[in-house]
Amino acid sequence: MTGSGVRPLGAERNNRMSTVLLSDAVDGRAADGQWAVETHGLIKRFGENVAVNDVELLVPRGCAFGYLGPNGAGKTTLIRVLLGLTHADAGTMFLLGHAVPRHRDVALARVGAIVDEPRFHGHLTGRQNLQILAAAREPAAEGRIAPALERVGILHRADDKVSKYSMGMRQRLGVAACLLGDPQLLILDEPMNGLDPAGMLDMRDMIKSLVSEGRTVVLSSHLLDEVERTCDAVAIVDRGTVIRQGPIAQLLAGSSFEVQVECSDPDRALGLLEGTSFGVHVQVRPDGLAISLPEHTERDAIAEINRVLVEGGIAVYRLQHIQASLEQWFLSVTSRLGASE
């Protein structure tokens, strides 16, 4: 990358990243590489404030990827940097295998994005707004206007002025605008904003259908529940830094979890379990015990708990493994970071 002040891809950086990808970096890299989005050491400052801080992000192709973080964490800024809406102060980045901003024209040709609240010319109809955007793309984009409008469910309102659209309809129009370029990569910044429950369901289904077509969808959001339902993988960003990333199932698998036990004598069961070396935290509840197991505890520990209780003469009626939700995991990760400071 040769952008102003952006440091070139260095061999010393990111040894944990794929060496195959780094070895053919910059111009020679294959456009159909493994990663839809790839950033290394990306930094964006606003004065003293570092909005994007040394971000290492790898988004696999063909999945729904959640980019999570609290408000002000730098999610939108990263997206703006990726799309060339603002420049990076340092680092390298690739979209669909093309270095940006050097090859932004080729890279963005197959990228669709909504950044912040989608806004359009209010005095024009939805169709006319899309005509303006299609004209800036390849000639074939003009022919995708009607299908895109139909796909997002506003074809019947396509000839109404955008000033008469609801927030949800503008959000849909924004998605339609993304589809004009037949994108391989969609970057949606808070796409659920302004949508009613039915609209959110539609949006979720649409994202899934886009992924099923082989497209990559990057979803920036603070709505953890929506991300958990929609995405295959996530990255957690806090204060400009990516602190965790990976497939949701694998991230949660490594997190702490709870085992709920319904048994005959909870108080005695508590004493039995506190005498073990599992490192568990046990609470007595009216319906039994709630046992919290630390991160990276193997599932065999559940069987071991059962064995200890049965051998201690406790009748076990129910033993349930409660996996932490993404929201619980997110809060535990971010609160731990906050406590460490």
């Binding site: 456009a31 696999p60 999945c63 669909l96 037949d182 082989g214 990976g246 497939p247 694998q250």
Partner: peptide, 23 residues
């Protein structure tokens, strides 16, 4: 820290081919 390179990436779908000549 667990990174995405530590785990298996999702299996790519039938992603469209590289940037068409038209573009």
């Amino acid at each position: 820290m667990k990174t995405i390179s530590d785990v298996d990436p999702p299996t790519p779908g039938t992603a469209p081919a590289s940037i068409p000549t038209q573009v």
